[in-house]
């Protein structure tokens, strides 16, 4: 419920129509949470090992890069923007970590900071281009993405290199044999998101996404909010690159590319509206988790991994059609 744009009334006494309630739940991530849990229950039923700490951590590790990328993308999509640079940022971070591995916990912290800085820089460029130069977001980020891909190729021409061992082992490990570290990273991101939601900036992101003109006339600095959203997004992409490197242990200048379209799929699946102003980070993370879980479930059901995409695509279309229907019912009321 963290992400409902208009938080639910504390007392049930307030009159909220059933349709409005349904819409809020769906857009707040309720729908995707339900799908995820149902899918997980099914997965547990057909694959008894699914509930072991090891498998959960494995799934979590697989999910986290996509989840973080989708979380970042959500900032931009809430603003009614597009951001293609996600792939480029992840690639740059990945090759940087592979070319310049820094050992030990200190090195890991430095690496993480570096990834955040790379993401923030690219995000700032996007934010200036979209917020201040008023370029179309999809066109501007297309350009920055191509440039980022080029930079990644300059840093590392062909797949190779090694990510520092500390990152590879510790970031994919479990604390006390139970809690996956990658899960903690996501939890930390969610916590930050909850705090951001309770700042003027957080509220402004939703306002700008829903009605830019009204937001401006209400005294919101639209350009700054927009640029800020891109910077936040970039930092999360950086973190996604960091976690992806821990996962793959090696560098690949194209490592971000496969995540690009999936990240959009995760955001849409979570119910965040591409028209802006509705949705949230939690929903997108669940969207990403569902896409990855779907892969596992299909594999366990004996369906060739070739066909995973057909299911992912169909689920995506169904989810968007469904939440669109719900939104329309809500608006009519």
């Amino acid at each position: 419920m963290i992400d409902t744009t208009a938080p639910l009334a504390p007392s049930a006494a307030r009159q909220v129509s059933a349709a409005t309630l349904l819409r809020r739940v769906v857009q707040g991530g309720g729908m995707i949470l339900f799908i995820y849990l149902a899918l997980y229950a099914y997965y547990g039923a057909i694959e008894p090992r699914a509930l072991r700490a090891h498998s959960i951590a494995d799934l979590m590790n697989n999910t986290v890069p996509l989840a973080l990328a989708a979380a970042g993308l959500t900032f931009v999509v809430l603003n009614r923007g597009f951001d293609l640079s996600v792939a480029g940022v992840i690639s740059i971070c990945n090759v940087t970590l592979a070319v310049a591995p820094l050992e030990g916990p200190g090195g890991a912290a430095l690496s993480a900071l570096m990834c955040l800085a790379i993401g923030a820089t690219v995000g700032l460029v996007n934010g200036l281009l979209v917020g201040y130069a008023r370029l179309q977001s999809i066109a501007a980020t297309l350009a920055t993405m191509i440039i980022c891909q080029g930079i990644a190729l300059v840093i590392l021409r062909a797949p190779g290199g090694f990510v520092s061992e500390w990152i590879v082992y510790e970031m994919t490990d479990r604390l006390w044999g139970v809690i996956p570290v990658s899960g903690l990273v996501v939890a930390a991101v969610l916590l930050v998101w909850i705090l951001i939601r309770r700042t003027d900036f957080g509220v402004s992101i939703y306002a700008v996404g829903a009605d830019e003109q009204a937001a401006a006339m209400s005294g919101i600095n639209v350009r700054r909010v927009r640029a800020g959203a891109y910077v936040c997004a970039g930092m999360l992409y950086g973190l996604a690159g960091f976690m992806l490197s821990a996962q793959t242990a090696t560098g690949n200048p194209n490592s971000g590319a496969p995540l690009l379209l999936l990240a959009f799929a995760a955001v849409a699946l979570g119910g965040t509206s591409l028209a802006g102003g509705r949705g949230g980070v939690f929903a997108s993370i669940m969207g990403a988790a569902t896409l990855m879980l779907l892969q596992k479930v299909l594999f366990s059901s004996g369906i060739s991994s070739f066909y995973t995409g057909m299911f992912q695509g169909s689920v995506l279309i169904l989810a968007v059609v469904f939440s669109g229907l719900i939104a329309r019912i809500g608006e009519r009321k």
Binding site: F82, L261, F264, A265, A268, L274, G309, M310, Q312, G313, S314, L316, I317, V320
Partner: peptide, 10 residues
């Protein structure tokens, strides 16, 4: 954006 993306994946 979503529809063509999904079709692409499918």
């Amino acid at each position: 954006f979503i529809m063509t993306l999904a079709m692409s994946i499918i």
